[in-house]
């Protein structure tokens, strides 16, 4: 089995699988990073993903265009972000609980809308892989990295873009200030509320796109509970990546690589109970973090509602 695992075709297979698996985590976690950088955390990512997955699928099915579908999913993401903002920012609700509420609402609404609009399992074309010229022809690397649909490229491109926005633009500085010292941001004349709303909407749109990737760019179908807990993993990956896009990229790739590896190990003949293979990505993610440096940093005002009047 080890021999087979080391074969080129197997390695390519594992890496390609890992890239696909990482895409929804990456999108959702990068979005959640913006939320948390601005000082709000959203446990409801799973709910937003489910709704994005459904809306994207439904609109694609009806219009015949997955691009219109993704636009609709983005719109759904905006609405969910505004809803979360209303409850968590304007009404200053406890974010842990409003996130769980958003999760229940999103999952429920997606299932409900599916029943009244479609109500049976069907499928669509979805986004087709686009081979990138020249790069796609590189042996091995081309197959692994440059032969996916546009959403995969988009998710990975978002890593440097997010990094640039966050650390190289004034707007990024404002976001970080709103998350670190909202009082100081307020004194500087920034609207903490506006920044946080914007970031929540960005995060929610990203989560909705992550969900839509599952239906439009991965399975090309919708079924109940298609997200299957990925939203929660994405939230965990933000902590893994320590609110840094590159860290999140590392976390998403690491988790997905182990997951892809365990699928392949099972396929190639596994001598241990499969449950331990399924557990592997979860166990190793924790271990990786334990073994990593013990220095930790987080937005100081994370989870605290901002109120100009003071408490």
């Amino acid at each position: 089995m080890i021999n087979q695992l080391l074969e080129f075709s197997t390695i390519i297979g594992i890496l390609t699988t890992a890239i696909r698996l990482a895409t929804p985590f990456l999108l959702a976690a990068l979005g959640e990073m913006f939320d948390q950088r601005a000082g709000v955390y959203n446990l409801g990512v799973e709910g937003v993903m489910m709704l994005g997955a459904f809306i994207g699928f439904w609109v694609s099915l009806r219009t015949g265009s997955s691009y219109i579908g993704i636009l609709a999913a983005i719109f759904a993401g905006v609405l969910m972000g505004l809803l979360m903002g209303l409850v968590s920012i304007t009404l200053q609700a406890e974010q842990g609980i409003s996130g769980i509420g958003l999760f229940m609402f999103g999952v429920g609404l997606a299932g409900y809308l599916f029943r009244i609009t479609i109500g049976y399992i069907t499928n669509i074309e979805g986004f087709q892989p686009i081979k990138i010229p020249i790069l796609g022809d590189i042996p091995i690397l081309g197959t692994v990295f440059f032969n996916h649909n546009w959403m995969v490229y988009f998710a990975f491109l978002m890593v440097p873009i997010s990094w640039f926005i966050l650390f190289k633009t004034t707007w990024g500085l404002k976001i970080r200030t709103a998350g670190m010292t909202p009082e100081a941001a307020d004194t500087l004349g920034l609207s903490v509320v506006a920044i946080r709303y914007t970031c929540l909407v960005i995060g929610s749109v990203a989560a909705a796109m992550a969900g839509a990737f599952l239906t439009l760019g991965h399975t090309n179908m919708y079924a109940d509970n298609i997200s299957a807990g990925r939203g929660f993993i994405a939230v965990a990956l933000v902590y893994f990546g320590r609110w840094n896009p590159w860290g999140i990229l590392g976390g998403a790739l690491f988790f997905s690589f182990v997951d892809a590896l365990q699928l392949w190990v099972q396929v190639l003949g596994l001598k241990i109970p499969y449950e331990f293979a399924v557990m592997a990505p979860y166990v190793l993610t924790i271990l990786a973090l334990v073994l990593a440096a013990r220095r930790i940093w987080e937005p100081a005002a994370l989870g605290k509602p901002f109120n100009r009047e003071g408490d």
Binding site: G101, L102, G108, L109, G111, Y112
Partner: peptide, 14 residues
Amino acid sequence: PAAIVQTIQGLMVL
């Protein structure tokens, strides 16, 4: 549909 149940529960929490 059972999903309405969860939707309304989520709304209540929110």
